[in-house]
Each structure stands twice: as structure tokens, then as C-alpha cells.
Amino acid sequence: MKILKILLIVPIVFLSSCASIYMNKSQDTAEEIILSMNRGEVDFPIEKSAVPFVFHGEIIITSSSVSRIWNGLVRAGFTITNPVVTSISPVVSDDFSLFRSSWEMESFFKNTIPPNTYKVTIEGIDGEVLMLINRDNRQDYFLLGLKADAK
């Protein structure tokens, strides 16, 4: 009986610790991206952004357009001063409406946003962002979506 309990508990503990590691790494990636942006550096955010990419209600197809987003934000002087991660959780099917309540965004989330994607919200004194961070098959973490607003 004791052995059976251990056999049941070990995988549960293992899986929950994996999920916790993935969440922590997603959070780290999100924070690093924001800190780079705050310093006016676009290389790291661009490198960490994958396509297709969601920017507010838009589905972006090319890396060039994603580069334009980061360059535009930095050029405008957008920063998240004293950033604090306020929430992190796995993406669920209804999350498309956080970007736009539309059939195309719903279809995009259903068909294109892969499993192992987390939504991370970061707030600062002057702005807030919602980011979609995905862990790919090679255990790398990438940004798949961004919503950014100044306060």
C-alpha cells in the first residue's frame, strides 16, 4: 500500500515541479525582455520573438514586422519602470479575448498557439504588458504575443 502511494505521489510531484520550472522560466524570459526594452535595447526582444505573433488585435506574419513593433516601442520611449510580475498562468482557450474578441483571434489561438504557452502580466509605474511565452521542443522560451499599454 505504501509503495503504491509512493508510486502515485512521485509522478504528481515530478509533474508539478516541471510545471513550476516552466512557469519560472517563462517569467524569467518575460522579465529579461522587459528589462532589455527598458534599457532601449531591441536585439534581445527581437531575438526572443517568434512568428506568427499577436500584437493587440493583430496577427503578425513576418519577423520584420515584429522588429518594427520593438523598434517602435523603444523609439517612443515606452518603459515599464520597476516591473513586477503580477500574474502567470497557462493559456486557456478563452484567452484569445484578452487580445481581441473576434472569430479570427479565436481561430488563431485554437490552431496556432501551441501547448506549453503561459500568459505573463507585468506591471510597472508607467506601463503594463501582457505577454505570451512558449516553451518549444528544444526547451527554449519564446514570446508569441504582446499587449502593451502605458499608464
Partner: peptide
């Protein structure tokens, strides 16, 4: 919608974010 509007939105949203 996908290419023209999207390019316009990126330019405007980032330019006027503050």
C-alpha cells in the same frame, strides 16, 4: 486586413503609445 491594416496599426500603436 492582414497586411495593410496590420502595418498601419503597428506604426500608430507604437508611435502614440505614450
Amino acid at each position: 486586413r492582414r497586411y495593410v491594416l496590420s502595418s498601419m496599426y503597428i506604426d500608430m500603436k507604437t508611435k502614440y503609445i505614450l
